[in-house]
């Protein structure tokens, strides 16, 4: 057992998603992973290629955090984000890679619990599956 921390990349919309992250920080909630948070104008801007590139470049797991679907600042952005995550999951399954490594989460600005919960879920997945291509699991 090593002290390797899971590498997780999170694409987060600058509206409700980031507000939820800030809310979590203000509430003193902490996460235990090395999360690289990438702020995007909207989860509709997240392309499947961004998610795949993150995995290619060493992320163990990737998540997308956007507004609630019926409360998206740009109306349908988080729906687009969900569809792209679903497509990447399909590609990963075809390639024999665990599709659980990629997830979509939604949050309202005031959901202080949403971001820590998303990170906790991805940490659990990353710990269970380990890095892509082997290496030590935690």
């Amino acid at each position: 057992m090593t002290d390797r921390r899971p590498k997780i990349v999170g694409f987060c919309c600058e509206r409700h998603g980031m507000d939820a992250v800030v809310m979590a920080a203000r509430s003193g909630k902490q996460s235990d992973a090395s999360v690289r948070l990438v702020q995007v104008p909207c989860t509709g801007r997240v392309d499947g290629l961004h998610i795949l590139k993150a995995l290619e470049d060493g992320a163990d797991a990737v998540f997308v955090l956007g507004c609630l679907e019926k409360n998206c600042y740009y109306d349908t952005g988080s729906i687009e984000g969900r569809k792209r995550v679903a497509y990447v999951k399909q590609m990963l399954s075809e390639a024999g890679i665990e599709k659980e490594r990629v997830e979509m989460f939604n949050a309202a600005s005031t959901n202080a619990w949403a971001y820590p919960e998303a990170v906790a879920k991805m940490v659990e997945v990353a710990r269970k599956l380990g890095p892509i291509g082997g290496g030590e699991r935690q």
């Binding site: 392309d47 290629l49 290619e56 990963l92 390639a95 024999g96 890679i97 892509i132 291509g133 082997g134």
Partner: peptide, 19 residues
């Protein structure tokens, strides 16, 4: 263009998994 980039990336991730 996008589909080519995504396929290349997915194949690279698969190769990484398969060593």
């Amino acid at each position: 263009e996008k589909e080519v980039k995504m396929l290349v990336s997915a194949l690279k991730v698969k190769n990484k998994k398969d060593g």
